[in-house]
Design a protein around this nucleic acid. Structure first.
Length: 425
DNA sequence: TCTGGGGTCCTAGGACCC
DNA sequence: TCTGGGGTCCTAGGACCC
């Protein structure tokens, strides 16, 4: 049985989610902003047509926003995650095996489907059902390897005549498409690599595909060698069996307003540690290592720049917010410098173990450990059931959090909060 | 004035050991 | 003056992805 994989990718995902609940914005150019309303992370078809670039800082395009009457939304991840889950649930029923790759895309196992026609029809029917059941439009790229499926998907998005589904199992078609694509459009080739490749005279995807894998390995890396092999139809990325446990958990934010006092920084870290610890417990893991980082703004050359990181280990693995927080605050003391205007901070948890299997404290009483676990369970349940929010006092009340992130134009929680359910009048 | 957040994998080089 | 070689483990940093 020939291996075959389909990549299903939602079009303009965040922008499309916002439009689902705002039919009045159907043909209006719409952009979605990053956390803190900093830069553009998603654009509707119309906004792309106006030349709005991905990642551009919003303040640089204020004039265009006004002139074209663009709709602007702060990012609403709760909404996008919910719509994503609906799309993924539908896809699951179409194939024996699937891997969710990101919030808006998934790889599906299409092995066993014999003909070009069969595969394309299947893709079209999936696409139809997703649009009908969720309102989201997807494109489908089908090929023998993931790297080629990515490329097929790109073609499905770019060329209207394809009807949103491209089958790239035929070698001649693969080569024709690759000859048209600049090398930086290959999955796994970013800015740095494409510059180096171009310096060696490799401009197109096809030219990269025709390089000797061993030479690429020697000049670049194992990763790029795999890419070359994948472009030639040799699959180098295996299917994951079951969900992959995380190796690290990060919580970091830019501040809505610069932080200048130690107390405010401690409060912010407190929020980040609490959030990271919640995620850790959701993964059913305990962590041993915690890293804290802080930095000033990176873009203003006039302003003194300072950035630093401190990392430390807990004596035993833990998922208790209080233990992690104590370490975080101690680490902060090592890197905190007065007199800077801090723009961003974050914490990272790593070195995970399943509860009870990590380093243990021989002298701590079992009862104390059990109390810790039960306390954290209780906190999580209060939050998950929406009964309110219990937090560590140090983070301060919302009114005190002048550094909290800006979300000026957040859409309602249409799918996750009763009060925000859309009404039809 | 205002420029995101959360991940993964790989590699080079240092520390350490015998 | 001459001062080995090879292996492993860890970490920081680079590059990539969405």
């Amino acid at each position: 049985m020939k291996p075959c994989v389909a990549l299903v990718d939602c079009n303009n995902f965040y922008a499309s989610c916002e439009k689902l609940f705002r039919p009045d914005l159907q043909d209006v150019p719409l952009i979605v902003l990053s956390n803190n309303d900093g830069c553009v992370v998603a654009r509707s078809r119309e906004a792309k047509a106006l030349g709005i670039r991905m990642g551009v800082p919003v303040f640089q395009i204020q004039e265009e926003i006004r002139r074209h009457g663009m709709a602007v939304f702060s990012s609403n991840y709760a909404l996008y995650a919910e719509i994503s889950a609906r799309v993924m649930r539908i896809l699951e029923d179409w194939v024996p095996r699937m891997e969710v790759y990101s919030i808006d895309e998934a790889f599906l196992d299409f092995s066993g489907m014999q003909t070009d026609r069969q595969r394309t029809d299947y893709g079209q029917r999936m696409r139809q059902q997703i649009r009908q059941w969720t309102g989201i439009t997807v494109c489908v790229g089908i090929a023998p390897t993931r790297t080629l499926a990515k490329m097929a998907n790109l073609a499905a998005k770019r060329y209207k005549a394809t009807g949103g589904v491209v089958d790239l199992c035929d070698r001649a078609r693969q080569r024709r498409l690759m000859s048209l694509l600049p090398v930086h459009e290959v999955w796994g080739v970013g800015d740095r690599l494409s510059q180096r490749l171009q310096a060696l005279g490799i401009q197109t995807a096809l030219e990269l595909a025709d390089c000797a894998p061993s030479w690429i390995r020697q000049q670049f890396s194992l990763t790029l060698e795999r890419t070359v092999r994948e472009l030639n139809g040799q699959s180098c990325i295996a299917w994951e069996e079951g969900p992959v446990p995380k190796q690290q958990i990060v919580c970091s934010r830019s501040f809505g307003q610069r932080v200048t006092t130690r107390a405010a920084m401690q409060a912010a870290l407190c929020v980040y540690v609490s959030r990271a610890a919640e995620k850790l417990r959701q993964e059913n893991r305990e962590a041993q290592r915690l890293t804290v980082f802080i930095r000033t703004g990176a873009f203003n050359p006039q302003e003194p720049y300072y950035a630093n990181t401190a990392s430390g280990a807990l004596p035993v693995h833990s998922a208790d917010t209080r233990h992690l927080l104590k370490l975080a605050l101690r680490l902060l003391e090592a890197i905190w410098r007065e007199g800077f205007r801090y723009a961003k901070a974050g914490v990272m948890l790593s070195e995970f173990q399943e509860p009870g299997r990590g380093t243990q404290d021989m002298f701590e009483e079992v009862a104390v450990q059990q109390r810790s676990v039960r306390l954290m369970q209780t906190l999580d349940q209060i939050r998950q059931r929406g009964l309110g929010r219990v937090f560590v006092a140090r983070q301060g009340t919302l009114q005190q959090q002048s550094w909290a992130m800006r979300r000026a134009t957040l859409s309602p929680a249409y799918t996750t909060r009763w009060n925000d359910i859309p009404q039809v009048c």
